[in-house]
Simulated scan of single mutants.
Amino acid sequence: MGRVTERRRVIRIRDGAVSTRPDTLVAEEPMEIRLGGKPLAITMRTPGDDFALAAGFLVSEGVLASAAELANIVYCAGATGEGGSNTYNVVDVRLADGVPVPDITLERNVYTTSSCGLCGKASLDAVRTTARWPLDTSADTPVRIEPATLSALPDRLRAAQRVFERTGGLHAAALFTTDGELLDIREDVGRHNAVDKIVGRALQQRRLPLSSCVLMVSGRASFELVQKAVMAGIPVLAAVSAPSSLAVDLAVETGLTLVGFLRGTSMNVYAGEHRLALSAAASTD
């Protein structure tokens, strides 16, 4: 199986001095996801938590909503390896008896990269109509979070990134309580993969919907990340960088609280401000 990191020789130049040294890089390998033996998607990911990645991907696509709907996930031996060896880069997901298998056509097959997620799949209506847990009704009690709690999350996320410390080349997604307690963290070369691993692990542990949690991501907030949060029933998504216009549109449509540019005590709230415990009314310029 592929490793999370690999070593490569580099030439290092510092203040005019040249030297050679080994460098630790994050591993990136393709993984094909099959559903009932039929190819569904290929993603470039960091090896590890592959079954959770596949499960989380299917949650975001509206195929799975609970562990009871999942029969098993297995690696496909000899899928691409020479001599029939197992590359551990192809997984096959089998649904439980009675769970409908979506029609997989050539138009439905998707290729996802480590940076962009499901490129071109930007349907606000599709996400709104297929979400299993409306965000305003999926929690037993309304979610409220203090801005000061949000402000502490980036540092807690960064402190828990073990592989990033060695490579500097990984995104991370972390799940927190509204009190700022770290519940889970996953790293991957793709930010959308890290989120899928978080959601997939929650499905495997029978914790969906994540209706009382905050999702924190290390990069920008794209449409795909908002989609994945909504499909997992997560009411709050925070990012250290900017959201896209479509991400904001989807957050508004679905009632998600979307926070961007979360750095220190500064942040921008793009949607769902009713979940933030604000001490004063917001002013407009």
Rank of each mutant, 00 (worst) to 15 (best):
D184T: 08
D184E: 15
D184H: 14
R186P: 06
R186L: 09
R186M: 09
E187R: 12
D188L: 01
D188G: 11
V189A: 08
V189P: 04
V189S: 12
V189D: 04
V189L: 03
G190L: 04
R191C: 07
H192C: 02
N193Y: 03
A194G: 12
V195L: 03
V195Y: 02
I198P: 11
V199G: 12
V199M: 09
V199H: 15
R201G: 04
R201S: 14
R201P: 09
R201V: 08
A202H: 12
A202D: 14
A202I: 03
L203P: 14
L203W: 11
L203K: 13
L203V: 08
Q204Y: 15
Q204R: 15
Q205P: 01
Q205V: 00
Q205R: 10
Q205L: 09
R206M: 06
R207C: 05
L208A: 09
L208P: 13
P209M: 01
P209V: 00
P209E: 00
L210D: 14
L210G: 10
S212D: 14
S212G: 06
C213N: 07
C213Q: 12
V214G: 10
V214R: 11
V214K: 11
L215Q: 06
L215V: 03
L215F: 01
M216Q: 12
M216W: 07
V217K: 08
V217A: 05
S218P: 00
S218A: 08
G219M: 02
G219I: 02
R220A: 00
R220V: 00
A221H: 01
A221N: 05
S222M: 00
S222W: 11
F223W: 07
F223T: 07
F223M: 05
E224G: 11
E224V: 07
E224P: 08
E224T: 08
V226M: 07
V226K: 06
Q227L: 06
Q227R: 14
K228C: 09
K228E: 07
K228S: 14
K228L: 10
K228W: 04
A229D: 14
V230S: 14
V230H: 15
V230Y: 15
M231H: 11
